[in-house]
Design a protein around this nucleic acid. Structure first.
Lengths: 343, 343
DNA sequence: GTGAAAGCGCTAACAA
DNA sequence: TTGTTAGCGCTTTCAC
């Protein structure tokens, strides 16, 4: 059973002063006699007093808490992004509540409602795979709670966004594959409902077109970002004998590579493989994985910064709408150009 | 700027009834005229009313929120454990606030204080590497807020714990390495301050003793669970020519294997490698990694269950103290017994 | 520099 | 079944 915690009222009566004086002494923004403050702080320390933030938030009408909604804790990208978000929020005196949608739109709506009920001061969200509308977000934005989408953002840009230029990144990776001599390029895409997947797909297709290559629908298979889905997708593609594979993310590439090796094909000699994200393990996988590196922690930090801009903005000040970052090509063994190496 | 949200008072005045009736109608545990309830719910729906949980929690003296403290979001184990914790908590109508200590004792204490100030109903914690005392936890337990340690638990058992039998797991892995013919066994351990590391180390040592092998201190090097630290540790060990390596976790094993391969040594022919955890990638790493599989989500769920037991327990009821689970050996390529295979 | 008093939004006696 | 009232712990006018 929970014991009744000490309150400022307790402190006040023990010290023979009023609640208000104790309250003021506890924070350092008011004129309080140094003597008085000292006494208060000493007793508070001694009795392990802790301000009830529930009460303070209720009174102040702000909680110093940010809500974060992610598809899943288990996706490495979000683990890292959360570190960045947590750090940036903490630096500004904010704490975070993290919810996961499990890629369900219904859960995502529930998460939003929960965060609203909890009176968070702002919300960061990476959309679920099944989210097709952003009405639930517009609604809360209209209620005055700022929202920022990050990574998995929607196409419509009424709500500020922080994301990677996925189109350019995919184009870059595709050009690289073509430059090293590949001609039969395959792509394992992400869920087609996501703007992010669409853009990486478009970048891939543009890369092919640029080089005068055909886009073969049989060589494009959808995944759900998981290792397992990568394994399944590549099996559908292999019969068409690709000489290169561009994957929507590293995890999918890992799964695909496992199967490719299992079938006795060599990477990169028979098939070159490129991923997207640059997960920690991609540098030590065998072969190490060529990939488009994303500044993950920075994305998290940027999302928090942008949220603060919108939280503190006056009506007429100039604030950023979107922040677009770029991914950088890291060439590793999975796409090494054997001809070049031989020289 | 945040607009004033609708309150029950607003609803009451619009409907011409009292706050309490509205409050009662909104929850379904009171006798309220079905007609009345219907009207209230309809208006609430229409106006997007959302109970202010800050106020409700303050009044009810309970928040329906569990606090979770983990060393880092970026450790895969915790990503998965969080999924389990989140699901188990949600099933019981609880939400979670997650804090990371970044393996700093100071941060851990700050996290505890923050959660106490936020009036969470219970706390789940995996200790930071630098936590040597559990006084901060005993203090809050005494204040009536139940605490459960999971995974990284302390040796002292005043506080309920959920953990793996690390000693038995390590012993099992070590026996396996010896059974396949290895004689010069090395160990990359975790931070020696952690009970978990100590137990895995003891299990390793016992395995050697059982087989009449010496424990060579030069072949035991400490890591901090990261891939990088595994790379560094193995370099110190290689000069002593081990024929087997037992790592405190899979990430460390991945790092070590990368270096072993770089040096031109073969796995498992020259060195067999075993890990601990069974991370998703260990099955598709090259070579795939032999490891002690942990039921990670179940650990998270068990921790939540145990916390609820302590939260709801009457003084005299029988409640569990510790929950100990066991890890299971998964044999893969990194320790394949070549002699056997050749048959 | 300090105190008295009101009120944030909600729930729960107690009355009616 | 519904209303009245008090109060959770805090901050903040407004006096003094």
């Amino acid at each position: 059973m929970q014991k009744k915690p000490i309150t400022i009222k307790d402190l006040a009566s023990m010290l023979g002063m009023s609640k208000s004086t104790v309250s003021r002494a506890l924070r350092d923004q008011y004129d309080v006699n140094p003597e008085t403050r000292k006494k208060v702080l000493e007793l508070a320390q001694k009795l392990d007093f802790e301000t009830n933030t529930l009460a303070a938030s209720l009174r102040e009408n702000r909680s110093y808490i940010l809500g974060v909604i992610i598809p899943s804790f288990s996706i490495p990208f979000y683990s890292i992004a959360l570190s960045g978000i947590h750090a940036a929020a903490a630096a500004a005196g904010y704490n975070i509540i993290v919810c996961q949608s499990d890629d369900s739109f219904e859960n995502e709506q529930k998460n939003v409602n929960f965060l609203m009920k909890s009176r968070v001061d702002g919300i960061l969200i990476s959309l679920s795979r099944n989210t097709t509308s952003t009405e639930h977000l517009l609604r809360i934005a209209q209620r005055g709670v700022p929202v920022v989408m990050f990574n998995r953002v929607s196409q419509q840009n009424t709500i500020p966004r922080v994301f990677i230029d996925d189109y350019a990144g995919a184009l870059c990776a595709t050009r690289h594959l073509i430059e090293i001599g590949c001609r039969r390029l395959a792509h394992i895409s992400g869920p087609s409902s996501l703007f992010l997947s669409q853009n990486r797909m478009k970048g891939f297709e543009e890369g092919l077109r640029e080089a005068g290559l055909n886009v073969d629908p049989d060589m494009i298979v959808e995944s759900d970002f998981t290792l397992e889905s990568g394994k399944i997708a590549i099996q559908k593609i292999l019969p068409y004998k690709p000489d290169a594979l561009f994957c929507v993310c590293d995890a999918v590439a890992f799964g695909a590579m496992a199967i490719i090796k299992e079938k006795g094909l060599r990477i990169p000699e028979d098939i070159s493989v490129a991923g997207f994200t640059n997960e920690p393990l991609s540098s030590i996988f065998s072969p190490s994985l060529t990939t488009m590196a994303q500044p993950i922690e920075e994305i998290g930090k940027a999302a928090v910064d942008l949220l603060f801009e919108h939280m503190h903005s006056l009506k007429n000040s100039h604030i950023r709408k979107d922040i677009v970052m770029s991914a950088g090509l890291i060439i590793r063994e999975s796409t090494t150009n054997k001809t070049v190496i031989a020289q």
